[in-house]
């Protein structure tokens, strides 16, 4: 008989000591982990050379403590500057940030925009659950207009961020958005992004069954139906426009601007040449 602990990823990519994982029933977080590990398994066959950085919140727990790899679980909002320091200090490492929308786009928003602007060579996977799940389901900068949360019991009066569009304009080399029902597309996106340089951003919509959905939908299943019927691919959306309430998914941009690492190593060479020439 197989038990739930028998899985080819456990012991290779996931720490047996922390299985079964701690995510709530219906949470999309481990589906994202699954898609990510499948991508890594097909490309590299191991987590060797990977460093995962995450902040505070449910999504931050995807890598820490679950991933059998180097994982750095940092302060609320600060995974991106820590990842920046790690990547600059050892450019051979594949540095991946996995964290939530509150962590990366609210308290850590400043770092997110600037990391995209400077095109630092890290992959950021932003798990958007529309609210602060871990602290009890409060309003996030991604909560849809009108949606109810524990701090917007009469409906959200604020417009949410469109993070994928924001990252396109901030200068990221790769931007995609998927939902947790698009696991195959998500896996391909991970594969593509892992092999690129510069700043790469993948937003995954993975609403919180324990907090957000309870306030806004009668049944969890409605969410999956909603995703099936209300998502529209970005190329179609750009041609035909987007109806109110539809979610745009797909690859928003693929660029090949040099990453910060390449630019800085060129700068270093230039600085040394200049210094030697001045000395002569």
């Amino acid at each position: 008989m197989t038990t739930e602990l028998d899985h080819p990823f456990i012991g290779k990519y996931l720490r047996p000591e922390v299985m079964p994982h701690v995510m709530c029933p219906g949470c999309g977080n481990m589906s994202i982990a699954n898609a990510f590990i499948r991508a890594v398994d097909k490309l590299y066959g191991s987590f060797e050379n990977f460093v995962f950085v995450s902040g505070i919140g449910c999504a931050a727990w995807i890598p820490s403590p679950h991933f059998l790899a180097d994982t750095v679980h940092v302060l609320h909002g600060r995974p991106i500057p820590v990842a920046t320091g790690i990547k600059l200090a050892n450019p051979n490492l594949q540095v991946v940030v996995i964290s939530g929308d509150g962590d990366l786009a609210a308290i850590g928003g400043n770092h997110l925009f600037h990391a995209a602007r400077r095109n630092i060579d890290i992959l950021v996977i932003l798990v958007n659950n529309y609210n602060y799940g871990m602290t009890g389901g409060q309003l996030a900068p991604t909560t849809p207009l009108g949606a109810r949360t524990i701090t917007t019991p009469y409906g959200n009066p604020e417009e949410p961020f469109d993070l994928a569009e924001l990252m396109v304009h901030a200068g990221a080399n790769y931007v995609a958005r998927w939902t947790i029902i698009h696991t195959l597309q998500l896996e391909s996106s991970f594969k593509k992004a892992l092999q690129m340089e510069g700043f790469r951003f993948i937003e995954v919509l993975s609403p919180c069954p324990t907090r957000y959905i309870r306030w806004n939908l009668e049944k969890y299943e409605q969410l999956l139906e909603f995703y099936k019927n209300n998502t529209i691919y970005v190329n179609i959306a750009r041609k035909k426009g987007v109806e109110e309430g539809k979610i745009v998914i797909g690859e928003f941009i693929v660029r090949d601007r040099p990453g910060y690492i390449r630019r800085y190593s060129e700068l270093r060479k230039k600085a040394i040449d200049l210094w030697r020439r001045e000395k002569e």
Binding site: P81, A83, T84, I86, N90, H114
Partner: peptide, 17 residues
Amino acid sequence: MEDEIGSIMAIIGASWA
């Protein structure tokens, strides 16, 4: 960096690397 918070966190990352 974009602020002092980013600065201290970046050196923490570099130190760990």
